[in-house]
Design a protein around this nucleic acid. Structure first.
Lengths: 201, 201
DNA sequence: TGGGTTATCTTGACAGTGTCTAGTTTTTAT
DNA sequence: ATAAAAACTAGACACTGTCAAGATAACCCA
């Protein structure tokens, strides 16, 4: 039998990612430096490069996990809804809930200069799965199809949810909609409900 | 009379800002470093600190100019429209046109960790003017009013335009909507038209 | 005109960053 | 047991933002 006193490869990798997440949540994306991550993980400043090609690769991994998590949020919310209209509403609400509860990851996921998905195919797949799910629920064909007019309503709905999330996250809507998470979620729900009601006619 | 052989204060300040803009447009916000700005402006690496407190102050100035420019885009577009519905559509189209034509400034304007408007009151004023104009055109009261239900449609419309801009800018909509600026503007127009048509009923 | 005050600008330093290179230890497989 | 590969460390480099202190130039008032 082997006493696993020393960390396995996956352990170190996981520890690096965990330290990254902690840093991100504590001080924002700006606080996530390779060297500080290494320090937290208790390894030399160069060790992370054995698991990730560069800083971007860590961010890509975090973003990928974010897309999976966002999909989870949406899947479980949509699962409870019966008709198509309420599925759409549930989708939007889940999107907002995810954004408000995971602001830093959300930023990471949607900033191409931080994580250019072109360079990280694995993360791109997770993103594609996420977007495809949105497209499926809102009832259009594959998102790649060029001139599919079906896409217009999908993108319109997605844009509204995404824009609202972004504006709230970046504080552009002032504090008019409450300070606590619950209040802000409630405000978002209201706006989404208004939009969804208008759009479904 | 004075022959202004040497640069005046405003000249140097302007040169610093101009160098900043050039850098931003060439290599994105990441390429905008204080030292490179100074190099371009032909001054020592410390000179910019005489005109701006820190890096954030330069970014705040650029963002402030961006808000003014966005307002200009919208004002001149709305000016041509007759009825209220087409004013709303013109507003959204101008918003998108600005974003697609000034991607880096647009990013700057809407990222609180880059420019926290709380710390730069002058830039905040320019942003407020911009948002107030949106609110005016879409027909709601002052944006500060707490529970104004009139704000819901305003924010809904703003969110759609902003979300669409963000998603297009960050490449999340794929290349399905064209490569050239014109094609992308046309695609954006289509989606905004769809939304606006639905919302106005 | 002279002299002092202030604004402007430079130089140097410091701690921090990402990442390249090279060397060292540990694990694994034969 | 030994050779090969993987995992990790240490040092260096060029770069960053910004603090501190010194140099130069412009201005203002006697």
């Amino acid at each position: 039998m082997t006493v696993t006193k020393s960390a396995t490869r996956d352990d170190v990798r996981a520890e690096i990612l965990q330290a990254s997440i902690a840093l991100m949540n504590e001080g924002g994306l700006g606080a996530l430096s390779m060297r500080e991550v290494a320090r937290r993980a208790g390894v030399s400043h160069q060790a992370p490069y054995h698991y990730f090609a560069d800083r971007g690769a860590i961010l890509a991994e975090l973003a990928g996990e974010g897309f999976d998590k966002l999909t989870d949020y949406m899947v479980s919310a949509v699962g409870l809804a019966r008709d198509k209209a309420s599925r759409g509403r549930a989708l939007g609400e889940a999107y907002l809930r995810f954004a408000l509860n995971n602001p830093e990851v959300f930023r990471l996921m949607f900033r191409c200069e931080m994580v250019d998905l072109k360079n990280y195919p694995e993360a791109k797949e997770r993103a594609d799965r996420c977007f495809q799910y949105v497209s499926d629920v809102l009832g259009a064909g594959p998102i790649g199809d060029k001139t599919s007019a079906d896409l217009v309503p999908v993108i319109a709905a997605w844009s509204t949810a995404h824009g609202l999330a972004t504006l709230m996250l970046e504080g552009k809507l002032g504090e008019a909609f409450g300070e606590t998470l619950d209040q802000r979620e409630e405000a978002a729900r209201k706006i989404l409900a208004y939009t969804s009601e208008k759009m479904s006619k």
